[in-house]
Amino acid sequence: MPKPTSEAGDLFAAPASRAGRVRAGIGGWTYAPWRDNFYPAKLVQRRELEYASRALTAIEVNGTYYGAQKPATYAKWRAETPDGFVFSLKAPRYATDRRVLAEAGKTIADFVDGGLAELGDRLGPINWQFQPGKTFDAADFGAFLELLPRTLDGRALRHVVEVRHASFLCAQYVELARRHRVATVFTDSPKYPSFADLTGDFVYVRLMRSEAAQASGYPPAALDGWAARANAWAMGEEPDDLPRVLAPAARTAARDVFVYFINGAKERAPHAAMGLLERLRGAA
Score class of each variant (00 low, 15 high):
residue 78 R to W: 01
residue 6 S to I: 15
residue 189 S to C: 06
residue 52 A to E: 08
residue 216 S to W: 03
residue 65 Y to N: 02
residue 93 R to S: 14
residue 222 A to Y: 03
residue 138 A to K: 15
residue 18 R to M: 13
residue 30 T to G: 06
residue 251 R to P: 06
residue 85 F to P: 01
residue 267 E to A: 12
residue 262 I to N: 09
residue 141 F to K: 10
residue 123 L to W: 05
residue 227 A to M: 00
residue 200 G to V: 10
residue 225 G to Y: 00
residue 122 R to N: 13
residue 23 R to K: 13
residue 91 A to E: 07
residue 240 D to C: 06
residue 273 A to R: 11
residue 124 G to H: 05
residue 135 T to K: 15
residue 47 R to A: 11
residue 19 A to V: 02
residue 197 D to L: 12
residue 129 Q to C: 02
residue 30 T to H: 10
residue 230 A to R: 04
residue 197 D to H: 07
residue 150 R to F: 03
residue 95 A to N: 03
residue 190 P to S: 09
residue 178 R to N: 09
residue 142 G to M: 11
residue 208 M to R: 15
residue 176 L to F: 11
residue 48 E to A: 05
residue 67 G to F: 07
residue 269 A to M: 05
residue 117 A to Q: 13
residue 183 A to E: 06
residue 116 L to C: 04
residue 171 A to S: 15
residue 154 G to F: 00
residue 163 V to A: 02
residue 168 F to H: 09
residue 84 G to E: 03
residue 81 T to A: 12
residue 10 D to A: 15
residue 218 Y to K: 04
residue 132 P to G: 08
residue 198 L to H: 07
residue 199 T to P: 02
residue 39 Y to P: 09
residue 103 E to K: 12
residue 51 Y to R: 04
residue 126 I to Q: 12
residue 182 V to Y: 01
residue 155 R to W: 05
residue 139 A to S: 15
residue 28 G to L: 00
residue 89 L to E: 01
residue 127 N to L: 14
residue 156 A to M: 07
residue 86 V to I: 08
residue 197 D to Q: 09
residue 191 K to Y: 08
residue 282 G to N: 09
residue 231 N to V: 09
residue 213 A to M: 09
residue 134 K to E: 13
residue 241 D to G: 06
residue 205 V to P: 01
residue 46 R to V: 07
residue 162 E to F: 04
residue 137 D to Y: 03
residue 131 Q to V: 01
residue 255 R to I: 10
residue 186 F to G: 05
residue 222 A to Q: 11
residue 267 E to Q: 12
residue 178 R to P: 00
residue 222 A to M: 07
residue 151 T to D: 11
residue 58 A to Q: 00
residue 192 Y to R: 00
residue 7 E to N: 13
residue 44 V to M: 14
residue 96 T to N: 06
residue 254 A to G: 10
residue 12 F to M: 12
residue 71 P to E: 01
residue 265 A to W: 04
residue 234 A to H: 03
residue 270 P to K: 04
residue 165 H to Q: 08
residue 43 L to H: 13
residue 145 L to M: 15
residue 35 R to Q: 09
residue 79 A to E: 14
residue 28 G to F: 00
residue 125 P to W: 00
residue 146 E to M: 10
residue 251 R to Y: 04
residue 23 R to S: 13
residue 27 G to F: 01
residue 131 Q to S: 10
residue 188 D to W: 02
residue 41 A to D: 10
residue 137 D to G: 08
residue 120 G to A: 08
residue 212 A to F: 02
residue 200 G to W: 06
residue 257 V to K: 02
residue 127 N to M: 10
residue 163 V to F: 02
residue 123 L to Y: 06
residue 183 A to V: 01
residue 144 F to N: 00
residue 246 L to V: 13
residue 118 E to M: 07
residue 15 P to H: 07
residue 236 G to R: 03
residue 57 T to K: 03
residue 87 F to V: 04
residue 47 R to S: 14
residue 167 S to M: 11
residue 54 R to W: 04
residue 167 S to F: 09
residue 225 G to Q: 06
residue 215 A to I: 07
residue 281 R to A: 15
residue 94 Y to L: 14
residue 188 D to F: 00
residue 263 N to Q: 14
residue 236 G to T: 08
residue 34 W to G: 00
residue 87 F to P: 00
residue 31 Y to Q: 01
residue 180 H to E: 14
residue 216 S to D: 15
residue 61 V to G: 01
residue 216 S to P: 00
residue 278 E to R: 14
residue 242 L to G: 03
residue 69 Q to H: 13
